[in-house]
Design a protein around this nucleic acid. Sequence first.
DNA 1: CACTCATGTTATCGCTGTAAACATTGCCGA
DNA 2: TCGGCAATGTTTACAGCGATAACATGAGTG
Lengths: 203, 203
Amino acid sequence: MSVNDNSVNIKNDKRGYHHGDLRSALVQAGLELLKTRSAEEVSLREIARLVGVSATAVYRHFPDKAALLGALCDEGGRELGRLQLEAMQRSGGGRAGFDAVGRAYVRFALDNPTLFRMMMTTRQAVDFLDMPEGRDNSALQLLRDNIASLTPAGASPEQRRIAALRAWSIVHGLAMLMLDNQVPTDEALIDAVIDSMSAGIAT
Amino acid sequence: MSVNDNSVNIKNDKRGYHHGDLRSALVQAGLELLKTRSAEEVSLREIARLVGVSATAVYRHFPDKAALLGALCDEGGRELGRLQLEAMQRSGGGRAGFDAVGRAYVRFALDNPTLFRMMMTTRQAVDFLDMPEGRDNSALQLLRDNIASLTPAGASPEQRRIAALRAWSIVHGLAMLMLDNQVPTDEALIDAVIDSMSAGIAT
DNA sequence: CACTCATGTTATCGCTGTAAACATTGCCGA
DNA sequence: TCGGCAATGTTTACAGCGATAACATGAGTG
């Protein structure tokens, strides 16, 4: 009779036995919980509870917890791509665009700490360096073009690779360090580091 | 009668009721398990099992699991400091020393993925940028001096701060990206990025 | 209108971290 | 030398977790 069993029994609002679109409701609820709790603190049962459904209903839509979290990561990836693309376009491209994309990357990380961490830890490698022309990473592709246009004309592909990786390392490292409170989350600091990054890209 | 209860009952070797130095045995075992398993996959009970002691015995030495993991982080921090100091000294300081410390940082991360991740996520901020002259971070202090000597003579303290943070971001970002398989773990790549980092430190 | 099968539920398992009560023993003062 | 206490171990217990299996419901199609 414990209230924390698999059953939830709330089911306050009128929705019958079938939910309608449980899958996206679970994703929605998961993203919501990730805003406050850290990743391993979010339980399947809690997500199900929030949606108002039994814990095991989740397994009709995801093979296991990792799969659900993976879906959250997908959602986050799309959002990040959108933000980066928007930042790039708003800034007008070129070096300013490069900086803007970097800032969008860091900002996304700071705005979605748990999700970002999970995306990086869990997700399949995007293989940013080899830049597959694949479907879903338009932002990365944009970035690639930008880096290509910023590096000196005579730069070898290998040099471009290094420049790209260094730039990625800078924004990623900065984001992680701030996420982990190793460095104060200071807007001016972000700008300064990113500025010094793009200044040095034509090494 | 389950074999997975709190009790372990192995206790094969002759050690009586009292262990002798259970605390460091637990730390030792914890570090061992972290080599193969990821952090959240290591359970208190498993560590205790490995040491041959009941699960709850742990609580005589650590208030909770986080505290034990914290002790592992401390150990890792000391080791990292040692390695960086050694790298610095072996290389003879200067720019070579700076690179060597960066490489040691990345290498430590790659050699101790779980521990490194935990150290960064869990640990109290070292506040690398403000560089407390504190006792235990001799390596960081060394690094600070090195950065100071590498930046142009006319650089302001703020500029040095930025240069230091960018350098840290590069090695940290590179380490994390490789740890997360976002980038191939390639020795030559590490060298190239770090080389381009120290080349650009006098920006 | 009946059947089917996708989608929900309940019951249960073994694992986890942790609290509480009990057991053992090293050590220190009388 | 002995008595007892504090430190350090053990057993027992509990709630929450992810996951499986068996069962219930009902939407949509023939």
